[in-house]
């Protein structure tokens, strides 16, 4: 068994034990970390692997959250049954955004997707018949099933979310390695060359968008399941920036990075407020800047560098690969390096 796999299993065991060692309040925070981790993982598939930026993933997150809330509150669906629906609707929405994204690069794509994020709260209010408008919509969290009645509510919700997260990570791990994973990073680093050995650029880019949005949608469902209530102010554009921060802090083009990034965006603001309520935002911003200064390749990037030292570290710095190809390698290069 590979060391990476052992590390994942240890991490999973720790994650299962975690709710039995923390207060109810903390466990709920960790439950939100699970939702954010799925969203960050989805954004990383798009940004880290396929090289397309989105500042609007909060919109897909909101869409997933509302699909679950509406189906549960208005149609009485069981919570888990709403997840595939949220994923499918968000995948379709992501695909639709992915088509114009084929012609938009870098900053232009960032702005278009930012538009989605900015418009989201207003759109939710607009369709108040369905969404409950500014009042929000209550969709009570699932209660502990009888055979697990030794669990507290918060522990149950945490473990339920963990059970949703694990397959999402397994799917992503399959996606980013092998033929599809290699093609995705080539779409990012050298789109022109990718065409010449048979990668259908448009198909890969739009599918990456669809998959990424589906992840954000599932994360939104997890949010609703955890919180039991959705309202427009939970889905401001700052949420999209948080996801971006989580991806970069965790490490671009990594699967495990999403977990560290999600821990960061959930807990650093909380601790910042503990230090000084009035200066919380300043402290959070400062920590973010410091973090990027110290760990430009994110948490997982650092771990990789430590592992590669001393054999290849020096060589890695001496990159002589000319990425420009005939006609100029178009496409974004939003990379941490």
């Amino acid at each position: 068994m590979s060391r990476t796999r052992i590390a994942w299993i240890v991490l999973l065991v720790l994650a299962i034990l975690l709710p039995f060692f923390f207060s109810s309040y903390r466990v709920t925070q960790f439950t939100l970390v699970l939702a954010y981790a799925v969203a960050a993982l989805g954004l990383n598939l798009l940004l880290g692997y396929s090289g397309q930026i989105s500042l609007g993933h909060g919109a897909f997150f909101a869409l997933g959250a509302y699909v679950t809330a509406i189906l549960v509150a208005k149609s009485g669906w069981p919570h888990l049954a709403t997840i595939p629906v949220a994923a499918a609707i968000c995948a379709a929405a992501g695909f639709a955004v992915g088509i114009p994204a084929l012609r938009l690069h870098g900053l232009y794509l960032a702005l278009v997707t930012l538009g989605l994020a900015v418009a989201t709260p207003q759109l939710i209010k607009r369709f108040d018949g369905l969404t409950g408008g500014t009042q929000g919509l209550a969709a009570p969290s699932p209660s502990v099933p009888g055979f697990l009645d030794f669990l507290a509510d918060d522990q149950w919700l945490y473990l339920l979310n963990l059970a949703i997260l694990v397959p999402m990570f397994v799917l992503a791990a399959g996606l980013v390695r092998g033929r599809v994973g290699r093609a995705l990073v080539t779409v990012r680093d050298n789109p022109i060359a990718a065409k010449t050995f048979g990668v259908d650029l448009a198909a890969y880019k739009t599918r990456a968008f669809a998959v990424s949005a589906a992840y954000a949608g599932v994360a939104g469902s997890m949010f609703t399941i955890t919180v039991g209530f959705v309202a427009p102010e939970s889905f401001g554009f700052a949420l999209s920036f948080s996801f971006l921060a989580a991806v970069v802090v965790g490490g671009l083009a990594t699967v495990a990075g999403a977990i560290f990034g999600a821990l960061f965006i959930e807990f650093v603001p909380v601790y910042a407020a503990d230090v000084n309520e009035a200066l919380a935002a300043v402290i959070y911003g400062g920590v973010l800047i410091l973090f990027m200064y110290v760990l430009p390749t994110g948490v997982v990037g650092l771990a990789r560098r430590v592992r590669l030292r001393p054999k290849q570290e020096g060589e890695r710095d001496a990159v002589v690969v000319d990425r420009g190809v005939a006609g100029g390698g178009a496409g974004e290069r939003v990379r941490a390096q």
Partner: peptide
């Protein structure tokens, strides 16, 4: 390619 087109 004239200039390399590899994935670093």
């Amino acid at each position: 390619f004239q200039h390399l087109a590899l994935v670093p």
